[in-house]
Write a protein that binds this DNA or RNA. Sequence first.
DNA 1: ATTCTGACGTGGG
DNA 2: CCCCACGCCAGAA
Length: 111
Amino acid sequence: MGIKENDNFFERVYEVVKLIPYGRVTSYGAIAKCLGAARSARMVGWAMNACGGREDVPAHRVVNRKGILTGKHHFDGTNLMQQLLESEGVEVIDNQIIDFKKLFWDPMTEL
DNA sequence: ATTCTGACGTGGG
DNA sequence: CCCCACGCCAGAA
């Protein structure tokens, strides 16, 4: 890309998202906190928006703090995000991840 | 430069 | 438990 080197912020977000284990999920705030920018949880979501369909970035494993699939609307289909999660064994009902607390993966603690 | 919006989070009621 | 208001930061019009 251009004169500017890779956007470390986005790249770092992608790195963390890539590390999310199969069948586990995390939140935007947790990632932001892990990066030292706890107040930039929104930017994490923005980074996902900019990721643009990278398969090495499982954005479907990132939800908000409540465990709700707030970003499902940004995926191709209507419930592609939910299908991806369910294909990993994550139960989702009405955009809400079941046992979210149990499936939650904290990059700070577990990494 | 100003304003609004957004895949968020926290706190108070 | 739910609902509301505020804070935060980056990008688009």
